[in-house]
């Protein structure tokens, strides 16, 4: 039983990590209807930049983080200027493919700027097993994972306040509901896009820090981030709680499958289990757990 709980908990924690990436997707999708395939690479890019600032320029952690945030905001601005602005009236699927292109650009750029070798990222997040959990419940959990979960929770609360209480946040929600209406009351779509891409750039940085601290900053990070896609399908593209809960379901599901099913089929189920789970789910509820059902009209 302890083993089962351990597996479940570690799945939950891994799920939180997926949620962090999925969160960035949801933000952009909600505000602009763009499915940003590059979100994972943005996390990689942010982590690379952070490591680069710390290692190559010797910046202290806080300065490096601020610097990286500045870079992500600048990046959002460039993306809006160079790409989004020119694709405004295109079909969603064209925009989707453009973000695949963006993923390649960022991947290449990150490697050119900071090199493609695996880097360690240590910003002082506690590592190793949590002694307290081990002593009290006899359960093994990484401190890092607890930290990640706490960070995710903080981030969600922070975003909720941002969307509910601030003027910009409310404007963002207005745009999400109706582009035309938002334009007609004088909200600039361009500004909104820069803001929302900046915010999800910062979310990407948080995700990048967590993943990077866990397994080093390397290219495979952007592949792990692909796992956020089934999370989105499960949670619905427009729902922040959906992203969190979807992430946890995927995380737990794939850990349990790996541990209990893996031995029978030769392991490495984690490669595809999340996608299959999402696929099966789609067949029964195409709009996701928290998505809105669409009534088609002609």
């Amino acid at each position: 039983m302890t083993f089962f709980i351990e597996v479940t908990l570690s799945g939950l924690m891994a799920g939180v990590m997926y949620s962090l990436v999925a969160l960035g997707f949801v933000l952009i999708f909600k505000a602009s209807g763009i499915f940003n395939f590059a979100q994972g690479v943005m996390a990689l890019f942010a982590a690379l930049t952070l490591v680069g600032f710390m290692d190559e320029f010797g910046m202290p952690i806080w300065l490096a983080i601020i610097g990286t945030i500045a870079v992500m905001i600048a990046l959002a601005w460039v993306i809006e200027r160079v790409m989004l602005r020119h694709l405004v009236n295109q079909e969603p699927i064209i925009l989707f493919m453009a973000t695949i292109g963006l993923a390649y650009v960022l991947e290449g750029l990150g490697d050119i700027l900071w090199g493609s070798d695996v880097k360690m990222l240590d910003i002082g997040i506690p590592q190793g097993a949590s002694d307290w959990m081990l002593d009290t419940f006899d359960i093994y959990i990484e401190k890092l994972e607890i930290f990640a979960a706490a960070t995710a929770a903080t981030l969600v609360i922070f975003l909720a306040i941002f969307f509910q209480k601030t003027r910009i946040g409310r404007a963002l929600r207005a745009v999400a509901d109706d582009h035309q209406a938002a334009l007609s009351v004088g909200i600039s779509l361009h500004t909104i896009w820069v803001i929302v891409w900046s915010v999800s750039g910062i979310v990407a940085l948080v995700a990048g820090i967590m993943w990077g601290s866990k397994s080093g900053v390397q290219f495979s990070l952007s592949l792990i981030a692909l796992k956020a896609l089934p999370v989105l399908i499960l949670g619905g593209f427009t729902s922040v709680p959906g992203a969190i809960i979807g992430g946890m379901i995927i995380g737990v599901g794939e850990k349990l499958a790996e541990v209990y099913l893996g031995p029978f089929v030769g392991g490495a189920l984690e490669n595809w289990f999340a996608y299959m789970l999402a696929l099966a789910f789609l067949l029964f509820r195409p709009q996701g757990l928290f998505g809105e059902r669409i009534i088609e009209r002609v």
Binding site: L87, I100, G101, L102, Y104, E107, L109, I112, S116
Partner: peptide, 19 residues
């Protein structure tokens, strides 16, 4: 790396200029 970047940039350019 430059190749990867170029491919990505070309995709974006094509989608913008000539879908």
């Amino acid at each position: 790396h430059i190749e990867i970047m170029t491919v990505g940039a070309l995709i974006i350019i094509f989608l913008i200029v000539e879908p």
